[in-house]
Design a protein around this nucleic acid. Structure first.
Lengths: 334, 334
DNA sequence: CTGTTAGCGCATTCAC
DNA sequence: GTGAATGCGCTAACAG
């Protein structure tokens, strides 16, 4: 591997001139420029970015902490982050944490040790969980939730859940089951609030028996659906906290002889590509996953540049998409 | 940000001793060690890895080139790569190329400029497309295909496709349609060979009218299914080159009044998590996506270490998973 | 066991 | 427009 020194020798010029030829060619005479270029070509010289990073004390990379990369919602957010990082000439370091705090800590360490300049966290933070502030690490939480002290980009989960519930209620549903995420998941907490708010609004009493816990996977949705199908009077609608669980639940319900939506309506959350192709196609909340990623990255760069002003909380619009998995409440159930 | 020099001053020791305390504590007296630790604690010192990387001329990272990160197959492979990179203390740089050669080139550049030590390509290479060899870049192709000059980890696509086809033929199917990937996609080429081989074996003539081209997306599968449903005598089975297209096709066929598998059998390829939850559940080839990633990473590290011996082509076993989307050919069609 | 010294590759002074 | 000299933070070789 040739260095800038080799190039300078080959060109018969000083290191400084070669360096200038690379960064500010207008400050170098055409003649020298040509010789430098020839030398570079001949030696197949490539500047050692490791050295540049060291000198500038800037890694030109950001790390993205993701609980599980093989999750379509997250990977779409990452796509958005990549988009703007690419434009800024930044690399994206992938931190697949698998919900392990230890792994997460290791990736935060990358920023502390300057291997990355900043961090985007895709996992929603719990209020008490303050991994970041003890280190001076520039960070943004994408897909964040309310009441966190971190700069955050999110949608209004409470309102979105409430909107879905209002729609179900408007279709005549009164017994509406829910497949929640883990109880301490901040998204689960927010969406639960929307669920309860809509019930209260409609004068329907909250029934804990209608709530069952999943973990946002297909399997947990399938599993949870069993709880409902075994009830003497099953709910007529099921509000699922994400699309995977909704699709899993539909699978389970159908196998038990339920028709969706004739016997039971099912709603999701996220609007994965697969939601359209589910049978029946899923009524769901479309989160602007790509946009969330882009906005989070933009915010992070502003923070890094010190050019950010104003609020550090961005609430992006969601969209309620009505498809075929929801219908009027069956008459006999009233 | 404090440096090792600050720590040495604070501890009243030389820089070298501090450095040793960090890397080889057994070579430092307990007394000094304690003072170093105290100084580090007080100053909140963190070693600057940028400097270490520079000195060792090793970035301790690998880049993964992926055509589309929001694709479940790829993200599962990446998960596998992450697994072994993590163990080796390497970072994974994400290169979402979006099928753009320019973007791909930029990521290869990361290796040329030492920002990464090696590269794993998830896109299958065409025989003529030699992006890598002109640069001296250590690389492995995961999900590769036959006859490439690069170290590669793959499954036997020809045999897998042939096995699926044999199964369909054994069920009595004679008119078997295919939803292919883009014609010049190496995977498409290999799987097509398997398709044709099975037909030839069974004495069934190849009919180009039964082949339609998709691009591995859900939508293209849905779209392609229209081609078949409009035929005067549609095929009784459909071999799709991946699960997404199969799921899209099933959606399309059902909407046209076809029953799967009673009227038409459908098979996929990959065995995404969603394949189980499709209705009907998909008969498909299970690629060991995670394993492919792990093996590719292991191979890359061996190459980087110079400890690799023997073949640079690994063919991993696949599994043929029979679910409910396939059944006997309908009688009336014979 | 500890300290002094040199140098990794590059960009940037400051002279000329 | 150009070159010589300096230093970024760290480790390794050497000397004590």
């Amino acid at each position: 591997m040739s260095t800038i020194r080799d190039v300078s020798k080959q060109a018969g010029l000083s290191i400084a001139t070669v360096s200038r030829a690379l960064s500010t060619p207008e400050k170098v005479s055409p003649e020298s420029l040509k010789r430098v270029q020839a030398a570079i070509e001949k030696l197949q010289y490539r500047p050692n970015m490791l050295s540049q990073k060291f000198r500038y004390n800037s890694a030109n990379s950001i790390v993205v902490l993701v609980p599980n990369i093989a999750n379509l919602f997250f990977s779409t957010v990452i796509s958005g982050i990549e988009n703007v990082a690419q434009k800024r000439g930044f690399n994206v370091l992938l931190g697949d944490t698998r919900d392990s705090m230890q792994r997460e800590q290791e990736f935060v360490h990358l920023v502390e040790t300057r291997q990355a300049d900043g961090l985007i966290q895709l996992r929603p933070y719990k209020a008490n969980n303050s991994l970041l502030p003890k280190a001076h690490v520039t960070a943004v939480n994408a897909s964040g939730c309310e009441n966190t002290p971190y700069p955050t980009v999110r949608i209004d989960n409470v309102a979105a859940a409430q909107e879905v519930m209002r729609y179900l209620i408007s279709l005549g549903h009164k017994r509406i089951g829910m497949i929640s995420g883990l109880k301490d998941n901040p998204h689960a907490i927010d969406r639960m609030r929307g669920y309860k708010a809509a019930l209260a609004e409609a004068g329907i009493e909250f029934d804990p028996a209608l709530v069952t816990e999943g973990d946002f996977t297909l399997w947990s949705g399938l599993n949870a659906s069993g709880h409902f199908s075994r009830m003497p009077t099953p709910p007529t609608a099921l509000f699922c906290m994400n699309d995977e669980m909704a699709i899993g639940a539909i699978k389970g319900l159908k196998s038990k002889g339920f028709r969706v939506p004739e016997d039971i309506s099912v709603t999701g959350f996220d609007d994965l590509e697969f939601a359209k192709y589910s049978d029946p196609a899923l009524t769901t909340i479309a989160q602007p996953a790509g946009k969330i990623g882009e906005k989070a990255a933009e915010l992070l760069f502003q923070l890094l540049d010190g050019t950010h002003e104003g609020s550090t909380e961005f609430v992006l619009p969601y969209e309620f998409v009505i498809r075929q998995s929801t219908g009027p409440a069956p008459q006999q159930q009233n």
